[in-house]
Design a protein around this nucleic acid. Structure first.
Lengths: 233, 233
DNA sequence: ACAAAAGTGTTAAGAATACACCCATGT
DNA sequence: ACATGGGTGTATTCTTAACACTTTTGT
C-alpha cells in the first residue's frame, strides 16, 4: 500500500493487471443445480461457453461491475439474485491469453431468472452442473469451487432459501439438498432435523400435483442469510 | 471478460483500479495470538500501524507480490510462513484516500518469525490481537475477518500445526486453541478428542519446565493442511 | 383397486459434556 | 512438605443414523 517497492516499474509508473469479475449464478431447474453461462462471440475462446464476466474499471466496486455485466450480457437483474457471496480471486498470470487478468469471482443464488437474448446479450443459458459443456479460461475450476462452497454453505446456513420458491414442500427442500450435495438423505431424519432448526414455518396452503396426497407448503421465516445450524448431512 | 461493455471508457481505453495485496500474518507469542504490523512512514496514514501490503503489478501473482512485500518491508521470508490462505478481496472505492485500490488479502501462519528493521523495512512488529493499536485503512476489519477465519479453520482442520513448534505438549496445543477461540476448553475432553483424530503422534521426548512433572512432547504427523475433523469446541 | 407421493416414531450407536483426583518434579 | 502443572476415566445428555408402514389423492 505504498509507492515504494513498486515491483516492475522503477521509473514510478505502475501498471496494474486487468481486473475482471466472473459470476457463478446458480438456479435449480427440474431438480438439478444449474449454472448460468454465455456463449462467447469474440476471441479468445470464441464459440466456447463461459461464465458471465467482464472488466472492472477504477471507481467501480466488483459487485457493481457484476450487476452491470449480468444486466448487459444476460439481461439478468440483481433483484433476481437473492444471495451473493464473494468466492475467491483467481490471479494466475496465464489464465487469460490476452494478458494478466485478475478475476474476483462471486456466487449468486436465484430462484427464477429470466434471460434475455438481444443485440448486447450473448446467448445466456442455464446448464446443469452435471452436464456442462467445455468452458473457456479456468471457468470449470471456478464452477467446481463455487459448487463446493455452496455445498458447505447449505450445511450450516439457511442459504438454500435463495434457490427455492417462497412456498415449497418439504420434499422440494430435501430434493434441493440432494441435488446440491449429490447424495440421498433420509426422509424422516431430514424432516425431523430441519423442522427442529426453526428456520421454516408451515403455511396453511397445500401443494397439489396429480394423483397423490397434497403436500403442506412451508416458507423460510427469514429471507436472509442466517447461520444457526450445526451441520447437515 | 470481453472488451465490449467496458464501463467507463467508451473510447476503448480501460483503466483498472490499483491492485494491492495485504497480509495478515499470525504468530503465537507467549500464548497470545499476534499479528504482524508495520508503522507507516509515508502518507496516507503516516505514523499509523498497518498490515504489510503493497502494489501488485501486471505479471505478478498476488502470492508473489505478498512474498516480495513481506521480504522488503519486514525482512520476512515465505519459508517461515507455514500456511497461507487467501481471505477475501476488499474493493470499496473509498478505502484508500489516494484512489480506488482493490486489495487481495491473505492470512499466513508462522511459528517463529525473525523481523528485520533496515533502511527498506518499516519497523515491523508483532501485536497481540487483543491489544492492537489503531490501524490504517480498513485494516482493523481485515484483521477481524482473518481472526474469524482462523477460528473456524482450526475447528475442522489441523491448521494449528503452523503456529506451533514442531514438538509441543498437549497443554501448549490446548492453550493455542484457547488463545485463538478466546474461550477455555476442558482438559480431559480436549485430549481425548484430539488424540482420537490421529493428527498427532507422541514422541519419546519430554519437555521439562521447572518444578513440575515433565510433559510428553507430540508432533503433527502431517505438516500440511488436512481436513479430517468434524468440529472442535 | 391401484399407483404415487405425503406423512409419521422408535431404537441403537456415537459424540459431546461435565466433573475430581493422583503423579512427577524442583525448591 | 509443598507448590506446580501433567496426566487420567466415567456417567449423562444429546445427536445422529437406521429403518417401514399408513394416509391421501387421482385415475
Amino acid at each position: 500500500m505504498d509507492h515504494m517497492n513498486c515491483p516492475n516499474h522503477l521509473d514510478g509508473t505502475y501498471e496494474p493487471p486487468t481486473l475482471t469479475v466472473d459470476s457463478v449464478i446458480f438456479q435449480l431447474i427440474s431438480n438439478e443445480l444449474s449454472v448460468l453461462l454465455i456463449k462467447r462471440t469474440t476471441e479468445p475462446f470464441r464459440g466456447k461457453w463461459a461464465l458471465p464476466g467482464g472488466y472492472n474499471a477504477a471507481g467501480e466496486t466488483t459487485r457493481k461491475a457484476m450487476a452491470r455485466i449480468l444486466e448487459a450480457k444476460c439481461g439478468v437483474s440483481m433483484k433476481d439474485i437473492l444471495l451473493i457471496e464473494q468466492l475467491y480471486t483467481f490471479d494466475t498470470v496465464a489464465r487469460d491469453p490476452r494478458g494478466h487478468a485478475v478475476s474476483v469471482t462471486y456466487m449468486g443464488l436465484a430462484r427464477d431468472l429470466t434471460l434475455k437474448t438481444t443485440a448486447t446479450t450473448e446467448n445466456p443459458q442455464l446448464f446443469s452442473v452435471n452436464n456442462l459443456p467445455k468452458l473457456a479460461y479456468d471457468h470449470a475450476d471456478i464452477v467446481r469451487y463455487a459448487h463446493q462452497r455452496l455445498s458447505s454453505k447449505i450445511t450450516y446456513t439457511n442459504a438454500i432459501f435463495a434457490l427455492l420458491p417462497e412456498y415449497f414442500t418439504l420434499t422440494q427442500l430435501q430434493t434441493a439438498y440432494e441435488a446440491i450435495l449429490e447424495r440421498k438423505l433420509d426422509k424422516r431424519n431430514f424432516r425431523k432435523k430441519f423442522l427442529s432448526l426453526d428456520l421454516i414455518q408451515a403455511s396453511d396452503q397445500y401443494y397439489k400435483d396429480g394423483a397423490q396426497r397434497p403436500a403442506l407448503l412451508y416458507r423460510f421465516s427469514q429471507q436472509k442469510l442466517h447461520t444457526p445450524m450445526q451441520g447437515f448431512g
